[in-house]
Amino acid sequence: MMDLTQRQWVKHAVIHPFEGFEDMRWKKSGSLKIAMLIVLLLFLGEIAYGRLYGFQFYISYDKTFNIIPYIVRSFVFFGAWTVGNWSVCTLLDGEGTLRNICIYSAYALIPYIVQLYVNVMLSHILVRDESVFMQVLELIGTCWTVILLFSAVKSVHQYSLKKTVFAVILTIVAMLIMLFLLVLFMSLIQQVYIFISTVYTELSYRAKV
Results as ranks from 00 to 15, higher is better:
Q190M: 07
R206Q: 12
L37R: 15
F180M: 14
E138A: 11
S204Y: 11
L126V: 10
L126N: 06
T198F: 01
I101K: 14
I15P: 00
N100I: 03
L98A: 13
I15E: 06
A152Q: 07
F43L: 09
Y205R: 15
G54M: 04
V136Q: 11
R73E: 08
P17R: 15
L203E: 12
C89M: 13
L32T: 10
D93Y: 07
L137A: 08
V168S: 02
L122M: 13
L4K: 14
L170D: 00
I147E: 00
S123D: 04
V127H: 11
L139C: 09
F18W: 13
F77Q: 15
K208R: 15
Y70P: 02
Y112M: 07
L41T: 08
G94Q: 04
V165K: 07
Y61D: 08
D93N: 14
T64V: 09
F43R: 11
L44T: 12
V39F: 03
M2T: 05
W9H: 04
G84N: 06
W9S: 01
E22I: 09
I103S: 04
K208V: 12
Y117A: 00
I172L: 15
F133D: 03
A80V: 10
A152N: 05
V76L: 06
N66S: 10
D93M: 07
G50V: 02
N100E: 12
F195A: 12
L4A: 00
L44V: 14
C102I: 12
Y53T: 08
R51S: 08
V72G: 00
E138S: 15
K162L: 11
L149V: 08
M36E: 09
G45H: 06
I110V: 11
A106R: 03
K208D: 08
V209L: 07
S155F: 01
Y193L: 07
Q56N: 13
I34P: 01
G96D: 07
S87C: 09
I68R: 15
A207I: 12
R51C: 04
C143L: 08
L109H: 04
S204M: 07
L92G: 00
F18V: 10
V83N: 03
I67Q: 07
H12M: 04
T201M: 05
E130S: 14
V118P: 00
L148G: 00
I34V: 11
F77H: 15
S105L: 10
L139V: 11
I194C: 00
R25N: 09
A108M: 03
C102S: 15
A80C: 08
Y112F: 08
L37D: 06
L126Q: 05
V168T: 04
F18G: 10
R73G: 04
H124F: 03
Y58L: 06
Q135I: 12
A174P: 00
C102V: 14
P17N: 12
F78H: 15
T90N: 11
M121T: 13
Q115W: 11
K11F: 13
H12N: 10
S105Q: 13
L116V: 03
L42S: 04
I196Q: 12
L41N: 06
I140R: 06
G30D: 07
V199A: 04
I71M: 05
M36H: 15
I47R: 05
S197A: 03
